[in-house]
Nucleic acid binder design. Structure first.
Lengths: 233, 233
DNA sequence: TATAAAACATGATAAATGTCATGTTTGGTC
DNA sequence: GACCAAACATGACATTTATCATGTTTTATA
């Protein structure tokens, strides 16, 4: 055992949340034999935009931001991936270089799975292929929704939405603060705005009682008010 | 023969451009037997956001816009689908109601393929599943790129980009005008801006010689200048 | 072909957002 | 604990974009 978590995919609970659960015992055994468990420190990259990926990453712990550098020098965070999610499968399937960079938002534990066993299973096990397809269909829907939000909602609405997204996907700690703490800059990069604008809006939300803060931590204080604002009232 | 184009999928040239080409002869025969060819007039809907789709649409001719209504009452066009593209497969695969509306931008000829034969082939023919997966991976990459553009580029840059997109995907007519003519409102909805802003920018581009217009038709006149503008110079 | 509706166009103005400058707080490290 | 860098914060201002008003042109159709 290399660490405290289960080291065989067959009995790894994380797998239940992603498409690997559609693999047969034998397929999973091969994956488990070839996988490499890695720890990634906060701020470190799993891979960079343009890299050729030789496998996929299965997140056991921690959160990764998937982002793309725009020509104006700003990073746009397209997605946050956490426990159970698989990163890099799009590039592996399309046989393209990575379109996004993946960076650890906090300390992570991930399993790197060489692409061979994945590709082979895709080509031979329709259940697995369809399961991957379902996940990608879901990602595509989410991406379409983000497009609509980006173009049709104000920055204020998007910041409010980001807080609900963080609450729904990562939960709250015992004091009611969002469990995933992002820097103001990262929030700005999720929302697609300037860091200063983001900070200003957070200040305003605090002043109006929609949220509370403690250092970098943020808690939703007036759920109803924030939701109304998010929806444009 | 119900019309001038080939009425059997097996010998339909359109199929070469989409994932149906990965089907076996037998599978394709079943699809062909169950498909229904429809004509859709400009402005008519193939389906609406929220509809439950009982199959997919294969575009033989014409162009469809895939759009989503935002809470502020504006339509955001997420994608334009033309000859050879398949519409609705995301919803069918995810077994969800449609996330987008599909509306004919000009007169269309489409084949409706009931989902049963598609789903069955997905579950039994890994080649087909992987081919669909590749297409969806490509769509997802494009969607991610749109997110970055929407959030990080100015409206002017996005309008310029839209013209290049139209040129690259739909070509030009013999006089150099973009072959696909969209209304100013549709362009605005692709770009994610107000119709007036879009019209103003088109006027400005014309004044500066980047484009020429003739009625609704638009031609790129100064490719280099427009490209520089698009990239932020 | 007369007529109404839709699409296109432009000005005036307000609102939203970005940028630059500057100062404060926080967190890590010697 | 002193010190430095990064993150956070806010003001002042410029720029971008949306909105509202109004008029013109095009298109569809009775």
């Amino acid at each position: 055992m290399e660490d405290g978590l289960e080291s065989r995919c067959e009995s790894c609970i994380v797998r239940q949340f992603n498409s690997l659960r559609a693999m047969s015992k034998d397929e999973l055994k091969k994956v488990s034999d070839s996988k490499i468990t890695k720890t990634v420190k906060k701020g470190e990259a799993l891979f960079e935009e343009g890299d050729k990926l030789s496998g996929i990453y299965c997140v056991r712990n921690g959160v990764s931001k998937l982002s793309k550098l725009s020509s104006n020098g700003k990073d746009q965070i397209v997605k946050l991936a956490s426990k159970g999610e698989v990163i890099g499968q799009r590039s592996v399937i399309a046989e393209e270089h990575a379109n996004l960079s993946a960076t650890a938002v906090n300390d992570m534990e991930v399993c790197f799975i060489p692409k061979d066993s994945i590709v082979h299973t895709l080509n031979t096990n329709p259940n697995f292929a369809v399961e991957v397809l379902r996940h990608m269909a879901h990602d595509l829907k989410e991406a379409d929704d983000v497009i609509v939000n980006m173009s049709q909602k104000t920055v204020k609405q998007r910041v409010a939405e980001a807080f609900f997204y963080l609450k729904n996907n990562f939960g709250e700690d015992k004091d009611g603060f969002l469990a995933l703490t992002l820097s103001r800059e990262d929030i700005a990069n999720v929302v697609g705005t300037a860091t200063e604008s983001c900070i200003r809006i957070i200040s305003e939300f605090k002043k109006k009682g929609y949220i509370k803060t403690s250092g970098k931590k943020i808690a939703i204080a007036d759920e109803r008010g924030l939701q109304d604002l998010m929806e444009g009232f």
